[in-house]
């Protein structure tokens, strides 16, 4: 009885397309990789670059996904999203620098015993800051974009300064854990261990988000809320609570991305979040504001392109993502996966 709605009714023949994934943007990822292969001309180099690009893309995805969901759900653009990245990185670094023993040990388990608490600390501190930020800074300016931009910029300035107050003004060096340092060889291709870890974590985050969004009732609510907030409320759901949850989760994810990025860069500084913001904005614009799948595809495209151009034409590398954004917007003005606002 209860499963009546979960399973299709007898003789339910759906002649309309039911698949919701548009595969063309997804196909761009292998397309760009294959296009780069003859240009790079060396297979091992290409493999190395591709892994580096995927790793970078995965970390950008972690940092950007929360921002795009928050925008989709509540029409709020948080220009201070970058500070959650920085704060997460600092929180993680605080744990890691106290556990140098476990970090330097040549044992994966021992390394993980430092990294897991560091990652949890990053998520927790960034999430907590997100909760506070939503209540104090953003709540009074719902519906007013101009004030949102200004107030979140102000919040960014203040939190960045507070980072200096709490953690000091200097860059904190952050060595990678011993077993994730260096590279291994796949044929002739050198692959950095840490990058493989980043890809695994990124895939896990994406898979978890995808399952949450597509297989749970909360996910259903979030997807519906992104499309039409008013209608979700008219159906009797308190979307505010949902929004706070998404905001906190998104901030936590940014914190996770922050600590991952910090270990990748092997250092932490207060501006690192803001330095990522331009790239994050580009990624979520490319993906289509509000779309998690779009954000994922956009992040991977940006990551791959940055690494290929970095090798082929270093001078172009930093600007490559902007060129990509322009091209994507010329093709699809609302991004790869535009969200239909009902």
């Amino acid at each position: 009885m209860t499963s009546a709605i979960a399973s299709p009714p007898r003789d339910a023949g759906s002649t309309l397309p039911g698949t919701r994934l548009d595969w063309i943007p997804l196909a761009l990822i292998p397309a760009i990789a294959l296009l780069a292969l003859p240009l790079v001309s060396s297979l091992p180099t290409w493999v190395t670059l591709s892994v580096a690009g995927l790793a970078m893309g995965m970390m950008i995805f972690m940092m950007a996904s929360g921002l795009t969901l928050v925008f989709g759900l509540m029409d709020v653009m948080n220009f201070a999203h970058g500070v959650f990245i920085s704060v997460g990185a600092y929180a993680g670094a605080s744990v890691l620098t106290r556990m140098t023993g476990q970090m330097q040990a040549e044992s994966v388990l021992s390394n993980l015993s430092a990294m897991v608490p560091a990652v949890l600390a990053a998520i927790a501190v960034a999430g907590l800051l997100g909760w506070f930020f939503e209540r104090v800074v953003i709540r009074p300016v719902y519906g007013d974009h101009l004030k949102q931009i200004l107030v979140t910029m102000g919040g960014m300035i203040v939190v960045e300064q507070l980072i200096h107050v709490v953690w000091g003004p200097d860059i904190i060096p952050l060595p990678r854990p011993a077993t994730f340092t260096g590279a291994f060889f796949l044929g002739d291709a050198a692959i950095e261990r840490y990058r493989v870890l980043a890809v695994i974590v990124g895939l896990a985050v994406f898979a978890a988000m995808w399952l949450l969004l597509n297989r749970t009732r909360i996910g259903l609510l979030v997807r519906a809320g992104v499309e039409n907030r008013e209608m979700v409320e008219s159906l009797g759901y308190r979307i505010r609570r949902l929004f706070v949850g998404v905001f906190v989760a998104g901030s936590g994810l940014a914190g996770l991305g922050g600590v991952m990025w910090a270990m990748y860069q092997e250092s932490v500084n207060a501006q690192m979040g803001m330095q990522m913001m331009v790239m994050i904005f580009i990624v979520i614009i490319i993906g289509g504001l509000g779309s998690v799948v779009g954000c994922f595809v956009g992040a991977l495209l940006v990551g791959l392109l940055a690494n290929y151009t970095g090798f082929l034409a270093p001078k172009l590398a930093l600007g490559s993502n902007i060129l990509l954004m322009v091209l994507v917007l010329l093709w699809r003005p609302r991004g790869l996966y535009p969200i239909g606002k009902g």
């Binding site: 800074v137 200004l150 107030v151 102000g154 919040g155 300035i157 203040v158 300064q161 507070l162 107050v165």
Partner: peptide, 8 residues
């Protein structure tokens, strides 16, 4: 920091 707070 203080100018940022004043700004908000």
């Amino acid at each position: 920091l203080w100018l940022g707070l004043l700004f908000i």
